[in-house]
Design a protein around this nucleic acid. Sequence first.
DNA 1: TTCATTGAGTGGTCAGACCACTTTGAAAAA
DNA 2: TTTTTCAAAGTGGTCTGACCACTCAATGAA
Lengths: 217, 217
Amino acid sequence: MTNPTTKMYLQIVRELRLLIQTENIRPGGKLPSERELVERLQVGRSTVREALRSLELLGLIETKRGEGTFLTDFRKHKLVEILSTFIIQDAKTMKDVHITREIHEKEAIRIVAESTTLNQLPVWSSLLNQLQEEGTIVREDVIREIMISTDNRLSLKMWFLLKQYGEEPYQGNSQETENELITQLLTAITQGEIEQAILSYTAWTGWLSRVQGGEIT
Amino acid sequence: MTNPTTKMYLQIVRELRLLIQTENIRPGGKLPSERELVERLQVGRSTVREALRSLELLGLIETKRGEGTFLTDFRKHKLVEILSTFIIQDAKTMKDVHITREIHEKEAIRIVAESTTLNQLPVWSSLLNQLQEEGTIVREDVIREIMISTDNRLSLKMWFLLKQYGEEPYQGNSQETENELITQLLTAITQGEIEQAILSYTAWTGWLSRVQGGEIT
DNA sequence: TTCATTGAGTGGTCAGACCACTTTGAAAAA
DNA sequence: TTTTTCAAAGTGGTCTGACCACTCAATGAA
């Protein structure tokens, strides 16, 4: 096998998908035994097992010692199909990182705005004051305060890493527009207006990414 | 191996996480070679490889023939670090894991319900049909379809890992109540009623987080 | 110094061997 | 006959050892 374009066990993952289709194996149905797959696919048993273990960790199949391997009780043909394609391509990651970071930010805003305890924290006024007095504020600082307030360290950590990766250069042009949107966001939070806060955030963020030329497909 | 509580390769996945943590292996860093792992963990090489293959399919590690095995660089979806640093399983952490998973789930629901393309996918009807015919459905299967539909692979991976990590038995409401809520959720999605979908979701699965440990600490 | 080569290290794959467990069917017992 | 017992076949779980293909760096020759 010189310069294997695709690793063997991935090949087998595909073969299995095909096999499931052509033989119309239903969710909960039984797959051929490992030894039979070895014969049919003409590969070693360990290779077959590597493919099966991956699928098992993904929750696509279940194995029962002494019985066999089964399709997880659900109609997954769709899942398998999607997985096979999502294993290959890898150019969309940037977009995913960006979107995922926004997921965490938006949810944090919702949580803060919704909680009467959190949306009354003095930090929001402080930020507004700072914006008034200094005429500028760093986006990251605002969001960080919001993320911290929710007290979810895991989400905070994820956000931090996502931000680090995204590492989009901050451009402080059109200061007035940005200040206006930040003010809207913070005000909405303190008044518990969840949807308004999200709208402001979206406008702010969307505006930012547009400025940064990050047009997303 | 009598009555293996957990399969060996899953054990190794855990060992690897520990190893990554204790040895502070950074994203992009190199893991011990397969043969070294065999010695250190006292298992067969094929078992080690089964664990590695599953992690590779998840995109957590990369292998390069002739070079070694590496933690996937974060510029390509590296939440390994997140999880490795989050091995600590104190109560707060588990709660964070739970909440964070819900963040991803809720946002996915929003995205799907909002998109006229996504909320018209035939899969929702299929799920409803299955629920009708079989009278039951697995929570995870429904959520997984939703997560996949959003086509955010990073979020999908995070969700998957969070799910594995949380690994909490779901003791839901009565079957009828649950079926009703699922139907509500799926119906709301197909009709593009975002807030209704979120409400159904919260009612369906959110009560658990409310019950365990009170609102936000 | 520069370049070519070789050998050690590493992942990829295969074959065969046991083990533990489940199912099944034939023999033994009733 | 019917019921019980249990041994064999089938299956996943794991280990061992053997090659192969590839990468890299040390070695040695030009």
